[in-house]
Amino acid sequence: MLFQPAIIALLLAAGLGVAALGGAAPFAWQILRRWNLASGSEGQLTMERRTYLFSSLVALVLGVQLAALLLFVFNADRMSEMFVGAMCAVGTLQVNAWGFPALVAQIAVFFAASQWLLINHLDNQARDYPLVRLKYALLLLLVPLLALSFGLQLAYFKGLRADVITSCCGSLFSGESRGISGEMAGADPRLAMGLYFGSLGLAVAALGSYVLRPAPGRGNGLLAGLASGLVFPAALTGIISFLSLYIYEHPHHHCPFCILKPEYGYRGYALYLPLFLGCAAGLGVGVLQLFRRRPSLAALVPPLAQRLAWVALLALVLFLGLSAGMVWQSNLILLEH
């Protein structure tokens, strides 16, 4: 176990989060069973009051988890100098078997938390708390996810010993290695590029059409949400299989973490921040469509969804523009014309 401020902070955040959500769970169960807005009973009144507390508490915990993802990756990259053979975050995450699962869990927490916060925001605006049951049911699902993420992080950080020889990203993301990350690198660049630009184009088109004409049905909003969800894996595959090559100007360096390093001008942050923001907001557009029929939300959903769609559209267009620019600027020629 390494005694490092950032590690302590991450564990503290996750641990407190699990404790807070765990504390909220019995209350969530109570709401699921007994919430009745029409009743004026003492119990209902107490529950209504408590929702303020637990909504703020969960919002705080999940908000912190959004930031924790960034801190986790940042810290993994930084620690690489402490391990022989590790040159970037891949090496650090590979020091033991829990590194990558912890990262994946943290990403899952990020997206789940962002959607929960969105639903919470919507619900707080309506007079009659139409989503309160759903919100707390989802909260009950979030508890094990967050606990899993905490457990993985704890296992990962506990297993860290400085000086363990780890492999650098060169071997993990080179075409020969097995496992999911190897497959992403080995994907044919043409296919990956098609998938990448195809899904991004689809998402941008769907979001654009939603922004321009949000009124008819829920079809295009759902489509925008789905497409944004699709963008995320496609974009990661694209970054690993061809975009990183253009950035490093090296035909075999597939690492998605080295682009976060100062040598490459922190370009990774310029890519990942809009990508995560765009995907989360785009997903939100889709999620919001599920509630537009509820009477008390009918007036609230469209403006919120449209605002989110704008955010997602701008972020994804920025991401697309930046990545196309990086390919354009690069001296590497990957595909013969």
Binding site: A6, A9, L12, A13, L16, L71, F74, N75
Partner: peptide, 18 residues
């Protein structure tokens, strides 16, 4: 560096808020 600032911010603001 950003990592330090973020850690510091977390260590001081989070306990207060909680």
């Amino acid at each position: 560096d950003g990592l330090q600032l973020a850690t510091l911010f977390f260590f001081t603001v989070f306990p207060y808020t909680a």
